[in-house]
Design a protein around this nucleic acid. Structure first.
Length: 1025
RNA sequence: GGGCGAAUAGCUCAGUUGGUUAGAGCGCCUGCUUUACACGCAGGAUGUCGGGGGUUCGAGUCCCUCUUCGCCCACCA
């Protein structure tokens, strides 16, 4: 029950996947799964198809075996050389963190991608889905640091080299499990290209990008206030410092005027009572930062403080003297209209400080400890030095209370930035960091959107994307952690030469030959992620065949949360380094939530483990449930406490497919059937015609819901196409409706007598049934790949369906072709030409269905006849139900010319209907006969849409009141609709202004309704007399 | 504070440029173990399309407004 070992080359490329992981989580139920595989009668045979289908479908008996078969056959692999002949269709998987384990969010994200890639693969594209993991700098470092804590150590105790070694080892041992888990849900990625953001290949891309941007003048080192996580010990980008609403306190503190400056200022401007000493009141939520205050700012136009500008105040607690300055930044309306300025600990204050040449003393260190860090002599009293920032806050408030400086405390709800990795309150901190100038990059990304090269679905995110890019700020890319790509900058130890930015490691100073040392910082993990769409294809090697064949890609599927972190930046990187956006479509799917609409999360304990669902109901049930509920941009609601109900629709649907197949195998036989193309159109029955027409409609609906797969002109979306496609729930519903409500409920039922009868007509029914189910399996395969593949291998199909198979899709089953797969950088080396081909074909590579009978008028006629039969059948069943008659009880049904009388008889209609009598009788167990005039009998009545009347004599059983009631109800609702239609047609403005076609159709409808209405009325009268 | 979205059957949602008597799944009610399927089959009920106003021959669909709920962004100390 374990998957084949991952390709050894992948392992090294990944630096992560060491051992083959069990298909299922190694928990208690794993043993059970293993037992199944060995003991159950239908283990691996199911996939190859040589035993009868068991009565009950057990997903776990087929899924892992089948997955291995696909993978060994190279079904998921894409080849650069084939992309010349086929259209390439490329997606890159959002790389999960290397330490991640699968949760339902990954499940949804990857299922969506898998549906798309399988659809395109079947449609004949050279479909490439690039998988991989992200080294996830801070997150992974945190995991290993926590492990060290259990040993009572910090990373500083073990040292940088030993620590990173430890992380590497950890990643090698347990990293990348999630990729194996993705196989359990059926993800058909090209695992031979599994990438890793910290692999040598991708690290080369990172250096290239850094150096190139530096050459372009877009990377610089800046000295400014950045977001700092004291727990993680690193700076963060704006996006990594998330706002969370928190209820804090706003403290009003009195800064008194320096005695020498009091002069003739009798009272303070903000103190009408004169109760306070002359000075200014400031308000702050972070009193601890006052130790680093270098000024108090007022608005230049604020009359209250005019006289104080240029004077000095005495800072409480440390008694330092600071100036009152005038700056536009101050909002006179807020608080007292005066704001304390702490240049080193607030980004805005830093800007104010620069304008006024203020010093920027640092009074809180990297760990959030208050002390005199830099330029801060005499600022931190000994009693405060060494305290944590929050302890120091309390202490300072005590001191302020004691000397009367704390005037007021009010509660204050505000947003505070927290570290997105550990949720610690972020500390603004003055430091040297590397930045990327984003405006030039953003300009190109905006251009790509405006020219239509890029679209985002759902549409509403486009405005968010544009808004963010237009207001973009420079990106802090340096991190003071150890796990990540070291910044490729070296400094000379001996001379003053400028820093050396280099693609290659630098050993000696190019100017003086002296020793050098590399920058200590590493790069933001997203600095490698944003290159993912091309670094995984061989960039910066511009001649890489993969890069040439597969860039740019097509669709990016992800959650809206990382639109800024990742998606926008990938577009910027793609436009900058590759001159083209990396994909033409961004598909942002919803979130999986619980019944209370809360996001599923580990901390809330409301999550669903996708592997639990796989074990219980199978991957297909999981996939079906998620996809069929996935409206565009809509969240998926599932109940973690009731998996049975949550996944019922998926499980039930799989069972239905299974049972249809069992029917086919017993009633149609396991032998192949006649190809449809060899069946003379004359031998199609009305039912055949109808189901073939429905198949065409289902194919059209699926195509519309899913596509178009790419812009029609190859590079930019038209306004018309921009909003189309990726309606996954509509696609799933269209396919489901066809196979269940149309094929199984109607066609299959109607064909039972024909199959039992055998003969030529039986063969036609077998051919049509097999053809339609074959097509249905194809349509469904992207959503429920395992069961459809299993069934497709076993159910009867046309003897020659080469015409229906994708050409040259037979794939190699020779393991040797794959065990030598090379790393992603040169994976194209294993050419298709060298692969041995076998006759085995998979549904996974079979051709996506296309419409065949669109313009066939005999099909249309037949379909109409069958629809009439359906009407009769439903009427008879309705009567049976209404009169509580056993389904099998004998029943006579008369078809009369209708209440309109003999004059209105339409022999053609009647003849058409008469051809359907056998079908109707078989499906209702009624005996039908045609009569001329409507006989007067105690009977149930139905007026058919073709004008004929259905009379079901029930003698003593008939309830005239019931009959009259039913007629009255129908008359009532029809009369209402008819009246509204008539008044619309009577309105000259409507007939004049509405499209002629519509008016025509409405007139025809009005006539039809009118006839039916009078028919119903006459009927009612006859029953009343 | 700014921007965006949503409100349709008990629940989750479709409803594509305004034009069938507004649909699906799940749930609910009734009947049925008919040799593919009770994880099923057949039949059935259920909506002043959030409130109000407007445009139009015609509005679930477009506009305004109100209410409720979400999401994104933002330096108000």
């Amino acid at each position: 029950m374990t998957l084949a070992a991952p390709d050894p080359e992948n392992v090294s490329a990944m630096g992560a996947m060491a051992e083959p992981q069990p298909m299922h989580q190694p928990e208690n139920s794993n043993e059970h799964s293993n037992e199944n595989a060995h003991d159950n009668a239908h283990g691996s045979d199911l996939a190859t198809g040589s035993v009868e289908l068991p009565a009950v479908y057990i997903a776990s008996d087929i899924e892992s075996t089948l997955y291995a078969e696909w993978e060994n056959a190279g079904v998921f692999r894409a080849h650069a050389e084939d992309a010349a002949e086929r259209e390439p269709f490329v997606m890159v998987m959002p790389p999960p963190n290397v330490t991640a384990i699968l949760h339902v969010g990954h499940g949804l994200n990857n299922t969506v991608q898998d549906v798309l890639i399988r659809w395109r693969r079947m449609s004949g594209d050279e479909a490439l889905w690039v998988p991989g993991t992200d080294h996830a700098g801070i997150a992974t470092q945190n995991v290993v640091e926590k492990m060290l804590v259990t040993e009572g150590k910090t990373r500083f105790d073990v040292g940088r080299a030993a620590f990173t070694g430890r992380v590497e080892k950890f990643v090698e041992e347990t990293g990348g499990q999630i990729l194996e888990q993705l196989k359990a849900i059926g993800a058909s990625a090209d695992w031979s290209r599994t990438a890793y953001t910290f692999s040598p290949q991708l690290s080369r891309a990172v250096r290239e990008a850094f150096v190139r941007l530096h050459e372009d003048g877009l990377i610089y080192k800046g000295h400014r206030v950045i977001h700092w996580c004291p727990r993680c010990g690193t700076s963060l980008s704006d996006e990594e410092a998330e706002f969370h609403e928190s209820s804090g306190k706003l403290y009003h503190i009195r800064y008194t005027l320096d005695e020498n400056d009091v002069g003739n200022l009798a009272t303070a401007p903000d103190d009408a009572d004169g109760a306070l000493p002359p000075g200014i009141t400031v308000a702050t939520t972070r009193p601890e930062t006052m130790l680093g205050d270098t000024a108090v700012a007022v608005h230049p136009g604020d009359k209250r403080y005019q006289a104080l500008i240029g004077k000095h105040l005495i800072l409480p607690v440390n008694g330092l003297r600071i100036p009152v300055i005038a700056d536009e930044y101050t909002d006179p309306e807020f608080g007292s209209g005066a704001v304390k300025i702490t240049p080193a600990h607030d980004a805005n204050d830093f800007e104010v400080g620069k304008r006024h040449n203020l010093p920027a003393p640092v009074v809180i260190d990297a760990e959030g400890i208050v002390r005199e860090v830099e330029d801060a002599n005499g600022r931190v009293p000994a009693s405060l030095s060494g305290l944590d920032r929050f302890r120091a806050r309390e202490q300072i408030l005590e001191m302020l209370r004691a000397d009367g400086s704390l005037l007021r405390t009010e509660s204050h709800s505000h947003n505070v930035r927290h570290c997105y990795r550990c949720n610690t309150v972020v500390e603004p901190r003055l430091s040297d960091q590397w930045f990327v100038s984003m405006k030039p990059l953003a300009a190109r990304a905006l251009e790509a959107f405006r020219t239509g090269e890029l679209r985002i679905l759902p549409e509403r995110w486009e405005a968010v994307y544009v808004n963010w890019l237009e207001g973009i700020r420079d990106w802090n890319i340096s991190r003071q952690i150890w796990w990540g790509h070291r910044i490729p900058v070296w400094y000379c130890d001996e001379c003053d030469s400028p820093p050396i930015v280099s693609r290659e490691d630098v050993q000696a100073c190019p100017s003086c030959g002296g020793g050098v040392h590399q920058d200590e910082d590493v790069l933001d993990t997203w600095f490698s992620s944003w290159l993912w769409p091309f670094s995984t294809l061989g960039w910066p090697d511009e001649d890489s065949p993969d890069l040439k064949a597969f860039y740019p890609g097509d669709v990016l599927v992800t959650a809206p949360e990382i639109l800024f972190f990742w998606v926008s930046r990938m577009v910027m990187a793609g436009c900058w380094f590759m001159d083209k956006p990396p994909f033409h479509t961004v598909y942002l799917h919803g979130t999986v939530r619980d019944v209370q609409h809360r996001k599923m999360s580990k901390s809330l304990g409301n999550g669903i483990d996708p592997l639990d669902v796989v074990r219980l109901f199978g991957a297909d049930a999981l996939r079906w449930t998620m996809i069929s509920g996935l409206g565009l941009g809509v969240d998926v609601m599932l109940d973690p406490d009731d998996l049975d109900t949550s996944f019922a629709s998926g499980r039930n649907f799989c069972t239905k497919l299974w049972n249809i197949s069992r029917f086919l195998l017993t009633r149609v036989g396991a032998e192949n059937v006649l190809p449809l193309s060899t069946v003379s159109p004359d031998s199609f029955t009305a039912a055949d015609a109808w189901i073939l027409a429905r198949l065409d409609a289902a194919i059209a609906d699926c195509d519309t819901a899913l596509g178009p797969p790419r812009p029609a002109n190859g590079h930019a979306w038209t306004d018309e196409d921009r909003r189309r496609g990726l309606r996954l729930s509509e696609y799933a519903e269209s396919a489901r409706r066809f196979v269940w409500n149309e094929l199984a409920d109607w066609y299959l039922e109607s064909s039972k007598p024909r199959l039992a009868q055998g003969g030529a007509d039986g063969d036609v029914a077998r051919a049509v049934l097999a053809h339609c189910f074959d097509a249905a399996l194809r349509l469904l395969h992207p959503v429920v790949p395992f069961i459809t593949e299993t069934l497709w291998q076993r159910v009867p199909r046309a003897t020659s369906n080469e015409d229906y198979n994708r050409s040259s899709t037979t794939v190699s089953t020779s393991p040797s072709a794959f065990s030598t797969a090379s790393s992603s950088a040169s994976s194209t080396a294993s050419s298709t030409a060298t692969e041995s081909r076998t006759k085995k074909s998979f549904l996974a590579t079979a051709r996506w269905p296309s419409k065949q009978f669109e313009s066939d008028s005999s099909i249309k006629r037949g379909a109409a006849a069958f629809e009439l039969a359906q009407e009769v059948i439903q009427a008879i069943r309705h009567t049976r139900s209404e009169y509580n008659l056993k389904p099998g009880a004998p029943m006579d049904v008369l078809v009369a010319s209708g209440s309109a009388g003999a004059a209105a008889r339409n022999p053609e209609n009647e003849a058409l209907l008469a051809t359907q009598f056998p079908t109707i009788e078989a499906m209702t167990r009624a005996r039908l006969s045609m009569v001329g005039n409507t006989p007067t009998l105690l009977a149930a009545h139905h007026l058919l849409s073709n004008g004929n009347e259905l009379i079901i004599p029930l003698a003593h059983l008939v309830d005239l009141d019931k009959e009259r009631g039913r007629l009255s109800t129908e008359i009532e609702s029809l009369a209402k609709a008819h009246a509204s239609l008539e008044s619309r047609l009577a309105n000259e403005k409507f007939t004049a202004r509405a499209p002629a076609e519509l008016v025509e159709a409405e007139r025809a409808k009005a006539t039809e309704w009118g006839e039916r209405l009078s028919g119903l009325k006459r009927k009612l009268e006859s029953l009343s007399s």
